[in-house]
Amino acid sequence: MSGSGHDHMRHHLKAYVGVFVALMACTVITVGVSYVHLAASLAVTVAMIVATVKGSLVAAYFMHLKSEQPAIYWILALTAVFWVLVMFLPLLAYLGSTGVR
């Protein structure tokens, strides 16, 4: 590997440490907020926002999605569509049970 390759990797290593610190900070935040006992809707919103930030950091840096091949983005875009559909099934069931059409 060339010298510039090593420098490139050192840059990566720094980023990994930074992401680790950010993930720990997010964990402290989400646990801390849970002890405050916010109203249900607010608690869910905060918890899911923090989890999404953490998940995005893992996917972008550790799984290298920050710079991947288009083929992978296409696979994930298709997955996201079906994932959203699956997540909306409870809502459809709920609307059905309350008679809202």
């Binding site: 646990v31 849970s34 608690a43 918890a47 899911m48 998940g55 996917a59």
Partner: peptide, 17 residues
Amino acid sequence: HFVDLVWIFLFPALYLL
């Protein structure tokens, strides 16, 4: 990392809410 990612969502959903 995917296994880690799943836990990142399970943890608040099951334990914190």
